[in-house]
């Protein structure tokens, strides 16, 4: 019995080792559905084998820290600029070359340690038959004034994009005003969700009427006939914040050439077309064809307030959210 077990374990062990050997290893905080098609296309074109470990940004960052110098990862593909900024701050990322960083039309971080790959925007989702757009404010800062929505507003304080949005508000308006806004919102008794899809489901089911979310979630549900619309706040308003996803090369990488090649490929027109085409995200280079539900790229980019995305301070935001009892 024991010998059989030993045998089984050895075989499995061997299989595991065989798996661990590959030429490019990505740690992706973005989910498989959004990454795999691109990885496959790159593999076919370049002949370079790519392995991906999926997880959430925070989990992967924690794993990278535990692994330290022994990490097998070559690239970190983050779902938020907050996580990428954190990775840069921990000193995990290499500085990228200018040939790479000159490609995106914007959002390149000052540290030059990661490149933006796609952009999403914050919007206010609302129920079509219950809410008139005329009643919705131009600025997210005026949202607490809508007392008619008391108890019928949804938000996601634990979700990274929401936290980036609060970080931006702190950067633009300061700590005191942000806290005031959060408390005024709290007075309207908003419902807190941990996932955006379940929040949009709640709009459909009549649990809430409006919700602070990311633009693509609304579009994915609109596609299948949900009675939900997106309200865009005015240009430059913090409620229209751009959310940048991106990737950087890890200092532990032993395949820097292949990793650079992969990033360059991700910034090519062909790869960039994937973002608007399949998942309703905005590309970061010009020339991609956008579906009618998306706004023209220049208009969308102009919508977001201008700020240095690396200055979004996540830790201070988490502290504030804990202070007002939202986390």
């Amino acid at each position: 019995m024991k010998r059989v077990w030993l045998g089984i374990m050895l075989v499995l062990f061997g299989l595991g080792l065989a798996y661990a050997q590959s030429s490019l290893t990505i740690y992706s905080g973005r989910s498989q559905a959004l990454v795999e098609p691109l990885v496959k296309a790159f593999q076919n074109e370049s002949g370079i084998k790519v392995q991906v470990r999926y997880g959430r940004d925070a989990e992967l960052l924690a794993a990278l820290q535990e692994e330290g110098k022994r990490s097998p990862a070559d690239l970190f593909w983050g779902n938020t600029s907050g996580a990428l900024g954190q990775a840069a701050e921990y000193g995990l990322l290499l500085k990228l070359g200018s040939s790479l960083l000159s490609k995106p039309v914007g959002f390149v971080p000052a540290s030059g340690t990661w490149t933006p790959l796609s952009v999403r925007f914050r919007v206010l989702a609302y129920r079509l038959d219950k809410v008139k757009t005329a009643d919705l404010p131009d600025s997210v800062l005026d949202l607490p004034k809508l007392s008619q929505f008391k108890g019928r507003i949804g938000w996601t304080p634990s979700y990274s994009s929401f936290q980036d949005f609060i970080s931006a508000m702190r950067l633009m308006y300061g700590e005191a005003k942000t806290k005031e806004w959060l408390l005024a919102m709290k007075a309207l008794e908003p419902k807190a969700y941990t996932s955006n899809p379940s929040m949009i489901e709640a709009i459909r089911a009549g649990e809430i009427d409006v919700a602070l979310t990311n633009h693509y979630y609304v579009l994915r549900f609109v596609k299948v006939g949900y009675p939900v619309g997106s309200h865009y706040f005015a240009s430059g308003d913090v409620g229209s914040l751009a959310l940048v996803t991106g990737a950087g090369i890890l200092k532990t990488s032993k395949h820097i050439t292949e990793a650079t090649r992969f990033l360059l490929w991700l910034l090519s027109p062909k790869a960039q077309q994937f973002f608007p085409g399949e998942v309703f995200e905005y590309p970061v280079i010009k020339g991609a064809v956008l579906p009618p539900t998306l706004k023209p790229l220049e208009e969308a980019l102009a919508r977001s307030p201008k700020l240095d995305f690396e200055k979004l301070d996540l830790e201070g935001t988490l502290k504030l959210l804990r202070e007002v009892g939202l986390l």
Partner: peptide, 8 residues
């Protein structure tokens, strides 16, 4: 998990 979290 990967698909449901993206509403797919």
């Amino acid at each position: 998990w990967g698909y449901t979290s993206e509403a797919m």
